[in-house]
Each structure stands twice: as C-alpha cells, then as structure tokens.
Design a binder for these strands. Structure first.
Ligand SMILES: Nc1ccn([C@H]2C[C@H](O)[C@@H](COP(=O)(O)OP(=O)(O)OP(=O)(O)O)O2)c(=O)n1
Length: 952
DNA sequence: GCGGATCAC
DNA sequence: TATGGTGATCCGC
C-alpha cells in the first residue's frame, strides 16, 4: 500500500498517464483510510464486552466483508420485532466461514440455545451499532477519496470512470472475501449513495480547478496526458452498396483508410480540443496524401495555441465536458433502478414508427462541389487544379486541390497558408454565386418540384419524372447531373432515396461529382444508414455528437445498440421528441416533403461586422452606425419592417451576448435612423449595465475590464412584417413606425423624460394596448410530423438566396435546423419537427397578428404539396400544412398621422416616423428605474408553449 | 419576449 | 498578429 502510494506520484510525472496504476493507488488509499477509520469507529460505537467476540476492532473483515453492513441495521431492526426474521438474518451470517463472522455464528448459537428474546435484542443492537459504524467508515473513506481523485485523476471526465471502477473492484473483492453476493439493501444504499456524492463533488472540484487554472500545454501534469480517441477507420456508411447503385465519376477512391502513426508524441492536447480546432472537417485530408490528418491537426494546433480564440475554444471544451459528465451521471443513476424491460419498450416504439415508413417518393439532394470555388473556376478556368480558397481572412470554402493539404471551410487564411503555402485566396463575389445558383435551380426544376436548402443545395422530388419518363432513379439522377453540368458548367453530387434525411447523407458519399442511390425498400434504407457516423446526420453537430459519444454511441446503428441507455435518459435529451427523432433516424426514416420557401418565410434580417477589437466608444458607435445603415438598406430593398431589434456583441474574448428590444406590438422599425438610434441605445445600455454589474462584483462576459472591448457588433431585426403585403392590404391596424426623417424631435424630447422613471413601461403598455385589435385565432394545425431539413425554411446563406416566385433577389431558403441541445443539461436536440408549431401555437395570439401579416404566404404555400402523389398519407413525412389560418386580421380605425406619445403624453402631428423618433428618444433615457420594474411587470407569461409542443 | 446555445452552409 | 457572415430553432426563464 505504502509502496503504491509513494510510487504513484513519481510515475505520473515521469510517464504520464497510467490508468491501472491510478486505480490501484486509489484502491489502496481507500482501504488505507478504511483501515484507519473503522477500528476507531467500531471501538467507539461498540461496547467492549461484545467486541471481544470478534477479536477486537481491527479485523480486516471490517473493511472487506460486506456483511458487516448488514448484520443488522436494516434487517436487524426489523428482526428485533419479529423473532423469525432475526433468525433468518443470523442464519445467513452463520454460513460464513472466516474472520469475525465466527463471532456472529457464535451469537447465533447463543440465540438458538437461549432463545430468549432479551438475548436476541441485545445481539441485534450490537450489530446495528456496528453496521452503522462501518457504514459511516465507508462514507468517510469515500469522502477522502474525493481528495485523492482530485489530486490523482484530475480530469473531470475521468472522475466518474475511476470512481465507479473503485466501487466495482471493491465489489469483486468483497464477493470473493465473503464468498457471497451482497444482498443487503443497506450495503448497496450506503455504497451507492456515497459514490454518487463522491462523483458529484469530485467532478465539481476538478471542473472548478480547470476553469481556474486553465489548461496549460506546457504543463506536464498527468491530467494533460494523453487521451487519444483512436481514429476509427472511417466506416462512413457500411457497404450499403449492395442495395444502392453506385456510380462515381471521379476516379479517386477515397475509401482507403490507412492507419497513421502519430505524427508527434509527447504531450498532446486533448483529442476533443484538437478536433474542435480542426473543425468539422473529416480530416481524411489529402486523398492525394499531401498531408496526413495528424499533420493537419498538429499544424492547426500549433498555429492556434495561445490565441484568444484558442482560449475560448478551451473554455467551450470544458463546458462540454461538464455536460457529458452530467448526462453520464444521469445514465449511471438511472441504470441502478432500471427495470429491464426498457429495450422491449423501445422496440415497441420502433415498430410503431416503422409503420409510418414512407417509400413512395424518390427524393434527391443535389449539392454543388466546392461551390464558391467552382464558381470562380468558371470565371477563370486557369484556376482549375490550383489550390485556392474563397474569402479573405477566413475561408468560406477551398478548392479540391487545396483540400488535399487540409484546407477547409471556416478555416482562417493564415492557417491555410501554413498547411498549403501556395494557396491563393480570392475575394468573395456573392453575385457570382447567386447567379450560378439560379441557373442550377432552373435546371433542377425541369425534373420536379424543388426546395433549395442553400445557394448550392436543393432537394428535388423525382417521383413524377421517373414515372413519366419510365426511368429508374439512377438514370434520372444521372441525367439531371449531366444536365446541370452542361447548362452551368458546375459539377454536382447527388444522393437519392425515399426521403431527405437519407439523400442528404448519400450525397456526401461519392462527393466530388458523384452520386449514390438508395433503393426504395425499408431494408436498403436501414442498411444504408446503420453504418453512418452520427455526425454525418443533419442536425447532429459537434456538441450532440460528443454527448452521444459520451453515452457510448458512435454510429447510427449504436442508437439501436444502446437504445436502453437512450431510453433511460430520454427525458434529459432536450425535449422528449429527440428520443423518437433518433429512433426514426436509426430506421432511416425522414421527411420527404419538397416545398419551396416563400418570401414570407424569412424571419429575420441581420448584419454583423467583425473588426479589430477596440474599447473605444466612439469607434464602436461608428461601426454600429455602419451596421445599421447596411441593415436599413437590406430592409428597404426587400420591403420588410420589424418589431424587434437585437444587438449582438462579440467580446474580445469571443464571448457573445445579445440584447434585444421591442418597442411595441405595432411599432415597426425600418428606417436607418430608428435602427441606429435603438441600436446605439442598446449598446450604451449594455455598457452601463455591464459596468454596474462589475461594480457590484458580478461576473460578466468579456473579461474584467470596465469597458467593453468588442471584436464584432451586429444588429438583427425580427418579428418581421411584409410591407408589400401591408401596402396591398387597404386597412389594417394602427400602424406606427419609428421612423426617420424628422430629427427635430430629438431635442425637445430630451428633457421630458427625466421625470418618468417608468416611461419605458408606460410606453410599452400603451403601445400594447393600442395594438390590441386584430383577432387571430388558435391554430388548427395539429399533429405534424417532423421535417428536419429541407421542408421550408432553413439554414444556409440566407442573404442571397432566391425565394420562390417574384424573381426578387432576395434570399430565403428552406430547411430548418433544429438544434439539439437543451441548454441546461443534457443532450441537445430538438426535435426536427415542427418549427412552426412553436411559432404559431406557442406564441401568444397577439403576436400572431403580426405573424399573419408577415407570412401570408406560408400557409397558402403548402396546400399544394403532396396532393399529387397520393401515396403519402400519414407518412413520416410532414406532409401537412400545419396551420391554416384564414381570418385575416381585422381592421382598426385610426388614421395615421396623429399620435399621443405614450410616454410624455404630448400630441404629435406629422409623419409616423416623427412619432417613432420621438418615442425612441425616451428610450435613450434612464435605464435605472425602468429597469427595476421591467422584469417583473412586463409582459405576460404563458405556459402553453411547452405543452403544446411536447405533446404530439 | 429575451438570451444563450447549437447547427448549417 | 491573426479565426467570418447569415439565418433558424429550441429551451428555460
Ligand atoms: N462555414 C461555411 C460553409 C460553407 N459556406 C459556403 C461556401 C461553400 O462553397 C458553400 C457550400 O457549402 P458546402 O458545405 O456545400 O461545401 P462546398 O460546396 O464548398 O464543398 P463540398 O460540398 O464539395 O464539400 O457555402 C460558407 O460560407 N461558410
């Protein structure tokens, strides 16, 4: 024992990390503590005369035999009431063969002989004391373990593992020692409870230390030691080729996965961090082998080390680690009480889900290869085959040649240059991409309904094309791809399957200029997705993947393999829907709805700008004004106004905060002046609030400096209203707009506010009152299935995407993105489903007034969808128009040019813009008083949201 | 409604 | 030396 203790620390320093040594040391220390504490406790709690029976208080059995716990606490106490039970309890003890148990046997003999109830009680009392003493000893030792874990294990991630291993080893030892399996509830309770407490406390301490000390690379302490996650051969998707037909035009067989030796040894940062720094890239780096994955990781790491960005990544990494541990803990505790029928239950759900499988459609996802880069090659053919990236500072994409060196999307140029010294970078030219995108989409439309998911991606429903032309999906997609290449000069890759989920994954398989078709059979779908790594699935990003990894899952098939685990933690997976979503993913199911997004589907407009960090107020104001101007321009061009403006700040530390403000329910923001005024106000308020928080000693983001030092400022408008729609609709609500032009108001209003501390509130209330008018009603949309991606609305390069009809060049895409991850704990995921459900049902009826206005199209848009192909009834597809609202808003009276300021009560005549400008003035004011009240009184609280959405 | 977090491209 | 811009959803207050 002693040897181990002293030897351990040394070996750590010299050799790094040795799990076996660590567990041996912990075990030894644990027993050492027990051996010191138990005799003392037993001596204290036991009467001396009885102590003799077991030969003193120092028997090794005290530590090693689980029966010391039981002898009598729980069962014994019960036994004191009933003789029979007491006999049973002692009976078991009698079967023991060595150590102190002989004493118990003797006691039992004594009982048998005397059969005096007095005697029985006495013996049991004695045992009870001892049981408690031993339990207490165990608890003390467990708490001492916290200290050892903290100093020896160090990494929060490993606490759980080592702690459980320790208990497990003890279990084995005690079973061996006692020649019996622990059947005492008390024993399990004490051991289990102290382990839980031990794990929680130790992890918290370790996490706290890491947050405090950081994670220094030069440090040679064991916790930095290696935690290499082996790079799995990228099984991609198993050999699904049996079912699907494969047809790759490009010659390179990306398939081979060579085992690479470590490019560097010695101190290595945590794998997760390396991965984070390397980005989502698959790192199968050079097909051409110019750089190995390890080299790429190393270079990225070396270049990043020490930067503020790097530090921020470390911080995130730690937080993620905490999350992983938390869910692991939840799983561990749930497993203790698992019933055993979990897998059966899951299987039932799977069966239920599988019934809704829909295989009638042929859905394709077309994705252009290295899109931006390809667009530039089109303009300048000499670029072909050269290594270049698009974007200054940060690469938005890289040419395939550059990718051989490890260059990727979202990689800073200076790192790309280290990887590939001769890489060239081109300036972004959005117009080029938009034009190319339009061309692609036009071509795609010849093959069926399409749903653009970004500038370079779109889903196409080939069902009808195949039927009409009498061709197989494979033939159809081959034609389509050839067609696109011919008409646009761009190469695209495609995936074809019965649903969007699978097609999306399939499109990646034969990536550059290739395609992958999955047969329309349940078997083919299932077989295909089984081998896919979780990260390949739309909606599963870095965080979600890590959390699932924490539960032991690596591939989609593991969802089934570990369905019991998922089931046990299902309530901690964000929302209950996540669990089912994963199951349907495993089944290879998904939405097959292909509908184009409409103009009204856009939900926000925003502009943000990164600059070299500064804490100069004037400079920040200046930047914000420019941002405001840009945003105003976008809004004007697209004819949208918004009710809510959100300021976004990225501190020098990369920590971000957002601050929003909604003047009123019917107050529309659009002009540069309003945006600017409100934006500056939000910025100033944040500066003041932050400074105040610092003075109060509270923690704030962005470092300790009293002034905000930012590297990015952004403004975003949400709760949009389509001004075109407004224009076309004669009467409507009282429409106020904070507006520009009249700057005159500025001065006069300035003084009026001082008095009213709660001008803010007042204004809010009055405006809300004023707004109460149009009637909206509850929605009708009921159950709609999920639609993770494409359906309508989405992610992507929002700003330029071309929306449906009007050939405007505004952009809106389709697809939606839910993100997993609930903030507080657990797994992310949100269920893909329903985005609109929340927005319609959850939000108050009042807002819908505006919602209605803003998105007249969205409801109208849908009715058209799946009608033609009757075959998609309840399918797992969404199919359904969610809500069908019809009542347009009612009208309200009220001319528009005369207002009474809700704040100062003045009556103003003139443009509404003047009005808004005036009102806005009040906002600039004293944040103080309004501050207090705002939180409590403002707004109503509605509980509906959650319930509605959960159910389903 | 707000703010943080996640994800996608 | 140095790490982007745009948009969407979800959750818990
Ligand atoms: N973080 C990112 C990722 C992508 N894009 C842009 C540039 C890409 O060209 C385009 C399409 O993205 P993809 O993910 O489809 O990647 P590419 O088309 O560039 O390459 P490939 O699809 O061949 O892997 O979106 C971006 O601006 N920022």
């Amino acid at each position: 024992m002693t040897v181990a203790m002293t030897a351990a620390p040394q070996r750590f320093r010299v050799q790094g990390w040795d799990p076996v040594l660590i567990i041996v040391s912990l075990q030894a220390l644990h027993y050492l503590v027990l051996s010191l504490v138990l005799p003392a406790l037993v001596t204290i709690f036991s009467s001396s005369d009885l102590l003799q029976y077991e030969g003193g208080g120092t028997s090794i059995a005290l530590a090693m035999d689980w029966r010391v716990f039981t002898g009598s606490t729980v069962s014994g106490i019960a036994a004191s009431r009933k003789l029979g039970a007491g006999l049973v309890s002692l009976e078991s003890a009698r079967s023991a063969t060595r150590g102190w148990t002989a004493a118990a046997a003797a006691a039992a003999g004594e009982l048998d002989a005397a059969s005096l109830s007095h005697g029985v009680v006495r013996v049991l009392e004695y045992d009870a004391f001892r049981g408690w003493a031993v339990a207490l000893g165990w608890v003390i030792a467990s708490m001492a373990d916290i200290f050892f874990l903290y100093h020896i294990v160090r990494r929060p991630t490993h606490i759980l593992d080592f702690s459980l291993t320790l208990v497990f080893v003890h279990l084995i030892l005690t079973i061996y020692y006692s020649s019996s399996f622990p059947t005492s509830f008390f024993f399990w309770f004490v051991v289990g409870a102290s382990s839980v407490v031990q794990i929680v406390l130790a992890e918290q301490l370790c996490v706290k230390r890491e947050m405090r000390d950081g994670f220094s690379l030069g440090d040679v302490t064991p916790h930095l030691g290696v935690e290499m996650t082996p790079r799995f051969p990228d099984l991609e998707l198993g050999q699904a080729t049996g079912h699907g037909s494969k047809q790759s035009q490009s010659g390179d067989g990306t398939a081979q996965t060579c085992l690479r030796k470590r490019a560097w040894t010695g101190e290595e940062p945590k794998a997760s961090l390396l991965k984070r720094m390397a980005g989502p890239s698959d790192l199968k780096a050079g097909v051409g082998g110019k750089k190995t994955a390890d080299e790429v990781q190393r270079i990225i790491f070396e270049a990043s080390k020490g930067s503020k960005y790097f530090n921020d990544q470390q911080r995130r990494d730690k937080e993620l680690e905490i999350k992983v541990n938390r869910i692991k803990g939840i799983l561990a505790s749930k497993e203790l009480t698992a019933k055993g029928d979990e897998e059966q239950k899951v299987d039932a759900i799977l069966e239920e889900l599988a019934e809704k499988r829909e295989l009638s459609r042929v859905i394709a996802l077309i994705d252009a290869d290295a899109f931006y880069a390809a667009c530039h090659e089109l303009e300048d053919p000499s670029l072909k085959g050269t290594a270049f990236g698009v974007g200054g500072g940060m690469l938005t994409t890289a040419s395939y040649e550059a990718r051989k060196y490890g260059c990727r999307s979202a990689m800073p140029l200076f790192i790309a240059k280290k990887l590939c010294p001769h890489i060239k970078s081109l300036k972004m030219e959005p117009d080029l991409y938009v034009a190319a995108s339009k061309k692609i989409m036009v071509t795609l439309e010849k093959y069926g309904p399409i749903a653009p998911a970004s500038l370079d991606e779109a889903y196409v429903d080939l069902t009808d094309y195949c039927a009409n032309q009498g061709v197989t999906p494979t033939e159809a997609i081959s034609r389509l791809r050839a067609d696109v290449q011919e008409t646009t000069g761009l190469t695209v890759s495609a995936g074809v399957s019965p649903n969007k989920t699978l097609s999306k994954i399939a499109a990646d398989i034969n990536k550059p200029d290739g395609q992958f078709v999955i047969d329309s059979t349940a078997e083919a779908c299932q077989a295909f997705i089984k081998g896919a790594r979780l990260r390949k699935c739309y909606g599963i990003g870095r965080v979600t993947e890590t959390l699932l990894n924490g539960l032991g899952l690596e591939t989609v098939n593991d969802i089934y393999k570990y369905r019991k685990r998922l089931y046990l933690v299902r309530d901690h997976l964000g929302s209950s829907g996540v669990f089912r979503w994963l199951l349907s993913l495993y089944l290879g199911m998904g939405s097959n709805r292909v509908v184009r997004a409409k103009r009204g589907d856009r939900k926000t407009y925003g502009v943000e700008k990164t600059f070299t960090p500064t804490d100069n107020r004037d400079a920040l104001d200046d930047i914000l004004r420019k941002v405001a101007k840009s945003l105003a321009k976008d809004l004007a061009r697209s004819e949208f106004s918004g009710r809510t403006i959100t300021l976004s700040i990225k501190h020098d530390t990369y920590e971000r905060v957002t601050r929003a403000f909604t003047p009123g329910k019917n107050v529309w923001i659009r002009s540069y002046e309003d945006i600017c005024r409100l934006g500056l106000h939000l910025l100033r308020k944040e500066m003041d609030d932050r400074a105040a928080a610092i003075r109060r000693g509270e923690k704030v983001k962005g470092g300790k400096g009293p002034r905000i030092k930012a590297r990015l400022l952004g403004l975003r408008m949400s709760n949009l209203r389509d001004d075109r729609w407004v224009k076309a609709t004669p009467s409507k609500l009282p429409d106020m707009q904070l507006s520009d032009s009249d700057s005159d108001m500025l001065h006069e209003s300035d003084n009026s506010d001082e008095g009213e501390g709660d001008g803010w509130e007042a204004s809010k209330r009055q405006l809300e009152q004023l707004a109460k008018d149009a009637e909206v009603d509850p929605l009708a949309g009921d159950d709609d299935w999920d639609d993770s991606h494409g359906g309508a609305s989405g992610s992507g390069t929002g700003r330029w995407m071309v929306v449906d009809d009007d050939d405007e060049d505004d952009v809106v895409l389709s697809g939606k993105t839910r993100s997993l991850v609930s903030r507080t704990s657990s797994l992310p995921l949100a269920r893909p489903t329903t985005a609109r459900r929340t927005s319609c049902s959850a939000s108050s009826g009042s807002t819908s007034t505006s919602a209605k206005h803003s998105a007249p199209s969205s409801s109208a848009a849908r009715q058209h969808s799946p009608t033609d192909s009757r075959a998609s009834p309840t399918a797992s597809t969404d199919s359904r128009p969610a809500m069908k609202r019809k009542t347009e808003s009612t009208a309200s009276s009220k001319p528009v040019s005369e207002f009474t300021c809700p704040v100062c009560q003045k009556t103003l005549v003139g443009s509404e813009t003047a009005m808004s400008g005036h009102v806005a003035q009040h906002f600039e004011m004293p944040a103080k008083k309004s501050e207090k009240k705002a939180p409590t009184s403002s707004v109503t609280r509605k509980g509906a949201g959650k319930g509605a959405k959960k159910k389903r």
